[in-house]
Design a protein around this nucleic acid. Sequence first.
DNA 1: ATGTAC
Length: 482
Amino acid sequence: MAKKITYNKIDENLYEIPEDFEKGMNVPARFYASRNTLGIITNDNSLNQLINVAKLPGIIKYALAMPDIHQGYGFPIGGVAAFDYDGGLISPGGVGYDINCGVRLLKSNLQKEEVQNHIKDLTSMIYYSCPTGTGKGACVNVSEKELRKILQNGAGWAVKNNYGDSRDLDYIEDNGQLTADDSYVSKRAIERGKYQVGSLGSGNHFLEIGYVESIYNRKLAQIYGVRENDVVVQIHCGSRGFGHQVCTDYLKKLSSYINKNNINLPDRQLVYASIHSEEGKGYFNAMNAAANYAFNNRQVLTHYVRRSFEKSLKVLKKPVHLDLIYDITHNIAKIESHTINGKKKKLIVHRKGATRAFGPNHEAIPDKYKNSGQPILVPGSMGTYSYLLAGTEKAMQDTFGSSCHGAGRTMSRTQARKSFGANKLILQLSKKDIHLQAKSKKGVSEEAPGAYKNVNDVVNILNSSGLVEKVARLRPMAVIKG
DNA sequence: ATGTAC
């Protein structure tokens, strides 16, 4: 029986497991929770995983967990961990299998009332032009040569090949391109990647048409360009089989590195390497290549969503366009500079099921949003609300400029399948005027809102902690799932 | 998350 985890209350919604709680911890472990979510969080293995992360060498300040934390591979999902760049620790478990899983938000020039009567046709048009589900299926099949260009150029590949506008790139985290040497990618990953360029995938990935239901902050909403009743689209997907293969490949390579260097790990799933070693450099480059694959994936899907809107809504007899508000990543490790004890320090920040949430005036934020902080997109569970938030200076100080990525599971996929029937869920959504088009019933059951925390709670925890500013809330009209 | 088992 594992020993009971004890923690101190630091602030209204912030708890800390002290450094002396368990031998080997280098820093305390901190997690954001409310009275409501505390019981859920302590119910799985995620806090033990967070304690193990706190034992890794070179970790800075604390191992952090956002309010959507749940158990993952090695590191908890909803976790943030920053490591000293000189020590150079990088770990695939701190990123996850779905490298650069992320979400983008598009805003149309249409109002809810204009789209409502055509929602089923529109959804169907998108569903048949954007492949969903596991396995092969792509908007565009590419040769190895073209795939390698995607791995190097990210979303820039899509724009260059007429899947989007060059302005789109300004509104993607890191402009949709990270530096990557694709020679570190395995042949097998390349093979899997060729047939999934422009595909949604399955699991919690989705494509959603919705509208701006309420505005919390008029000034910020104006800067981001959203008003009540505006029709919006969210695309949530990642690097598909390509990223999965990269993770698999490097877990194996880094496991050999751990053995070769006689490193003791708190958990075998926490394999890592120094980014300055050949193995670590390899993972970093392959991970960035997968991130580029995902950025490009979301960009190609955007193109087909735009074409579907134009075709399906011809009846409106007006030009229809969708502008990208922002595209944000959920699963990645990045080299960033942060102020630690008054001094600028180069860090490797792992965000797994967590997003970047930079505050106002950060150099990485597009000019248009400079004064408002970075847009943060928090999709809720299927058929519930999603949020548009803004990063704050407090997030820079307390969480290395990070926020949560969603509602966060409370139930395993298996448990959810046993607990919720797909037909009943579809009916429940339809009663709320939400149209669902899904490839598999299994997927629908696994994604039942009852298997997730309440996204309103999660967002309010971060808001009351000062880490995010609430800008707007989105309500779904139609959801496409794998 | 994932050719849900190399």
